[in-house]
Design a protein around this nucleic acid. Structure first.
Length: 360
DNA sequence: AACTCGGGGCA
DNA sequence: TGCCCAGAGTT
């Protein structure tokens, strides 16, 4: 215990603060690896308030790992709908099946073994190992990076190879090896509640006397990060056929890109804008004769994409046939209730245009 | 090491 | 707008 330049009192003060100030969260009532794993995957790049209802839904629908392992991907993606980063849901199911059917339901118990699971990276492996099994490994997430960068004034960008190593070492040095579960959660809670990105509450920080950035009044300069790539524009043109008042045509996305294995209306994606006059002949080629009822536009912003979506609601003159692949008929009611839809599509479904041309 | 993958909330 | 969020997988 005790490394050069590191105060051994940090973890003790941190954990004392945590016991008084920690928020109540459903996954904090247990150490079951299944529930800890589920909560950690849900919380990847997701705020607690946003993820909590999804955790409740999943536990209610799949109380055990076996229940999840036996579920269909359609059902899991439908439950995940709206949360984003859908590969998390696909990998979650893959790993549930792997543990249940290949590992005979025995959850891996060490950081090293957990790291092998699909969808479980360094952070999640450390979280499960420490919280469920008390293994002395330090978690390093966005919160921990912020706390540590300010505590020690680390100028190395955390998203560089060198920085990653530095932050891992620092996090491990201040870890209380006897209380890894409490310590790790306390670090993240401090980053979330006190050591916030914009207006940190340094007056009420239990580690204020240790903080080098606070001492020099440069807290907001940390953490240092490499610039990320800017977002690209995309133009998504959807064809929304009205077969009768209740039916339409949809497709399942199969490519290894955005919204994989989820459902949308037939889509023509482009990096350039496609004007209506130019697009109409394309629709006619694939769907036969039709009448355009309505064209509505939605701008959908993602972290790395700006999608300019155009929905062409059309009444088909011929029956629901298409030359496009993988197109099939579905009732609107069933589409909304059972098919996993990207937020962009549910936004459109909630719009007035849909209620005018479809009867629910 | 850089890119991809979502969606919501905040100043 | 830009940034952040209990990140991971692919190229």
């Amino acid at each position: 215990m005790g490394k050069i330049g590191i105060d051994e009192g940090i973890s003790e003060k941190l954990r004392a603060w945590y016991e008084i100030n920690k928020r109540s969260m459903p996954w904090r009532l247990t150490q079951e690896p299944y529930k800890i794993w589920l909560s950690e995957v849900i919380l990847q790049q997701t705020q607690v308030v946003q993820g909590t209802p999804y955790f409740e839904k999943f536990i209610s629908e799949f109380p055990t790992l076996k229940d999840l392992a036996e579920a269909s991907e359609d059902k899991v993606l439908k439950l995940w709908q709206g949360l984003g980063y859908y590969s998390r849901a696909r990998n979650l199911l893959y790993t549930a099946r792997f543990i249940h059917f290949e590992l005979m339901g025995v959850f891996p118990k060490t950081y090293f073994e957990l790291l092998k699971l699909k969808g479980v990276g360094e952070y999640t492996a450390a979280a499960i190992a420490s919280i469920s099994y008390n293994e002395p490994v330090a978690v390093v997430d966005g919160n921990v990076i912020r706390v540590i960068s300010r505590l020690f004034k680390i100028d190395e960008p955390f998203n560089s190879g060198k920085g990653k190593k530095l932050f891992n070492e620092a996090a491990y040095q201040i870890l209380d090896k006897n209380q890894p579960a409490q310590h790790n959660q306390a670090m993240m809670e401090l980053g979330s509640l006190v050591c916030r990105p914009q207006n940190p509450d340094c007056n009420n920080c239990p580690l204020a006397e240790h903080c080098l950035a606070l001492k020099d009044k440069v807290v907001l300069n940390y953490p240092v990060k490499l610039k990320k790539t800017s977002s690209k524009k995309l133009y998504f043109n959807f064809v929304v056929p009205v077969l009768d008042d209740r039916k339409t045509l949809i497709t399942k996305r199969t490519g290894n890109d955005i919204w994989k294995n989820m459902y949308t209306f037939p889509l023509y994606a482009s990096e350039e804008e496609i004007k209506e006059m130019k697009f109409i002949p394309t629709i006619r080629e694939d769907f036969g004769d039709f009448e355009v009822m309505k064209v509505s536009k939605i701008k959908h912003i993602l972290s790395h994409r700006v999608i300019h979506a155009t929905f062409y609601i059309i009444a088909l003159k011929e029956s629901g046939q298409s030359k496009k692949n993988n197109i099939f008929e579905v009732e609107i009611n069933r589409l909304v209730e059972f098919y996993s839809l990207p937020r962009l599509i549910t936004k459109f479904m909630e719009s007035k245009d849909v209620s005018i041309y479809f009867i629910k």
